Computed example of a mutant assay.
Amino acid sequence: MTSEAPPPTSAATTRPRRRVPFWDNARFACIVLVVLGHAIQRLIHDSNIAYAFYLSFYAFHMPAFAIISGYFSKSDPPSRRQMTRIVTDILLPYLVFEALWWFTKWLVEGRFDPNITQPSWTLWFLLALGIFRLTLPYLALLRWPLLWSVAISIGVGYLPNVDSTFSLSRTLGFLPFFVLGWWLREHDIVERFGLLRHRPWWAYTAAIGLFALDAWLAYAGLDAWREMELRYWFFYDDSYPDLLPQPMWWAGGVRLATLLIGFVLSAAFFVLVPLRRTPWTALGQYTMYVYLLHSFVLYPFRESGVLRGLEPTWLWLPTVCVLAVAVTVLLATRPVRVIAGPLVEPRPRRLFRDPTLLPSRRDDPTGSRRGS
Rank of each mutant, 00 (worst) to 15 (best):
F125A: 12
W121R: 11
I90D: 04
Y232E: 06
G130E: 08
G181C: 08
L129E: 06
F193L: 12
L126D: 05
R226Q: 14
Y232Q: 05
R111F: 12
G181A: 13
L159V: 13
V162K: 07
L142Y: 00
I152K: 02
W225L: 14
A128S: 14
T171Y: 05
G173S: 03
F112S: 06
R185S: 14
V190A: 04
G155Y: 02
L210Y: 15
G194K: 05
Y204D: 10
L180R: 10
I116Y: 13
I86A: 09
S164Q: 08
T135G: 13
V179N: 01
V87S: 03
R133F: 11
F211C: 10
W121D: 11
L213K: 13
A99F: 08
A206F: 10
A140C: 03
V108I: 13
F211L: 07
R143E: 06
E109F: 11
W225C: 05
H198L: 13
G157L: 03
G173V: 04
P114L: 09
L92N: 05
T135S: 13
F132Y: 15
Y158A: 08
R170G: 02
T117Y: 09
L126R: 05
E98M: 12
L92W: 10
S149Q: 03
L230S: 07
A151Q: 03
L213G: 15
D214E: 15
L134V: 12
T135K: 02
A206N: 04
F103H: 10
L172Q: 01
W148S: 10
T117P: 00
L222F: 10
I86H: 04
P114V: 07
S167G: 00
W144N: 06
T205L: 14
T104Y: 12
I90Q: 03
M228R: 12
L91F: 14
I152C: 01
F211M: 13
L123S: 10
A206P: 04
T205S: 11
L195A: 12
P176K: 05
F103E: 13
W216K: 04
G194C: 06
E191F: 00
W183V: 01
W201A: 15
L172G: 01
F193G: 01
Q118D: 09
V96N: 01
W101M: 01
T205W: 01
E191Q: 11
F178Y: 15
W216D: 00
F112G: 08
F174W: 02
Y94N: 07
D188T: 14
G221N: 10
L91T: 14
D188W: 08
Y138W: 15
P119M: 11
W101K: 00
G209M: 08
W106Y: 09
L134H: 03
V108D: 06
Y232I: 00
F103R: 11
A220W: 05
L217Q: 03
P93T: 07
G194M: 04
A218K: 02
L129A: 07
A128F: 02
T122G: 12
K105D: 15
L210W: 15
E229P: 00
T88M: 03
A212S: 15
P200S: 14
K105I: 09
S164T: 08
P93I: 06
A220S: 11
W183Q: 13
L196Q: 07
